[in-house]
Design a protein around this nucleic acid. Structure first.
Lengths: 192, 192
DNA sequence: ATTACATTTTATCATTTGTTAATTGAAGGC
DNA sequence: GCCTTCAATTAACAAATGATAAAATGTAAT
């Protein structure tokens, strides 16, 4: 449906004012896919060669750490840039699993092809630097929140960042994202 | 002194195998400076147009958050890549202050000039992508440590990452980096 | 060596968060 | 509908961390 294109353009426009022509061209390179709840887009430990944009739905990015614990590092909610493939991989191998928590609409492209487009389109090249910067800052922002806020404040901040998501995804994922146990989360939800 | 060049080359070689020729050329573009303990390299809220490499000494990167609290987000210890300028700034304005905790030797370059070099040297272009990836992953790594380790474990991890630094910098900075009070840090230092 | 000042440690008590286990709630299969 | 299973809440207690203030120690200047 034509709708996906509008969403795609809105996503980029919310970050930077790329000309419609560039967005048009980029969009024509993408493959639009619908994936079902529970599907894994990329797997921790497996090869990963694609980049994705989330157009609709909810994704979570997580990993199994050295102690065997699952740690949710990010949620993607409606239109979002997914962390670029080159930032997610180590020797072509994915450091994370990205999992659909609902049915999702995504746009997908081979990273190599995206890189080619990036190198022949200066405007997009600059825009993508902006986007990486933004993702980088999001990480630092999270570090600060994680380091200086109480669990209660972190929950408030989470709610502001992902309004309503609490009603759609298992609380254990949210607790893991917040760095608390799900028992603590339940307790915090009770307050006020 | 010639020493600085050796250190500079070692720094890059520890990340990626750039040819000596490229490193030579890049080095010739840099200005080597010595800065005194207490000097601020860039200031939160002020314009920032340069990129830096730490060749010797200790730096700390921090910001004043919305509540007026100082949060130390990173230490740089001996040879290190400093977070690239384009990742640190918002509309050309620095989001952080970078401060010398000891006398330091740094290499400095206008970001615009570095960008030019990057664009005319494919090998360096790819290397710098690697470096950004590494910095990106460091951030995520820190998120995970912060989210899943106890304060005691975080201190252990900090000691492994910055061996000996504990003896050179005020503990209040370390506590802020670890996301605990300096009283708690003192307590943890006592154990074992 | 003495003073003045800043940093670190110690002590006490309050608050937050973790752990474990039992209870309740909700969703799907039969 | 009833049962099974998984998720979320509650409770009770333990452990970790914060807050405040006082004491001890370190550092630099004179």
């Amino acid at each position: 449906m034509e709708d996906t294109k509008v969403i795609f353009i809105e996503l980029f426009r919310s970050y930077t004012d790329l000309p419609l022509q560039s967005l048009d061209e980029l969009f024509s390179l993408l493959k639009i896919r619908t994936i079902n709840k529970g599907t894994d887009l990329v797997y921790q430990g497996k090869s990963s060669t694609k980049d994705y944009f989330l157009l609709n739905g909810i994704l979570r990015e997580f990993l199994i750490d050295d102690n065997g614990n699952e740690v949710t590092v990010n949620f993607y909610y409606n239109q979002s840039f997914i962390t670029p493939n080159f930032c997610r991989i180590e020797n072509k191998i994915s450091s994370f699993t990205i999992q659909a928590l609902s049915n999702c609409v995504i746009a997908e492209i081979e990273s190599a092809e995206l890189e080619k487009y990036r190198n022949r389109n200066v405007v997009f090249f600059n825009a993508s630097a902006l986007i990486i910067t933004k993702l980088f800052k999001d990480n630092i922002e999270r570090q600060i929140v994680q380091a200086t806020y109480s669990a209660k404040k972190r929950l408030e901040q989470f709610r502001a960042k992902f309004p309503g998501i609490e009603n759609y995804v298992p609380h254990s994922f949210i607790a893991s994202y917040l760095g608390i146990t799900n028992v603590s989360l339940s307790r915090l939800r009770k307050l006020k």
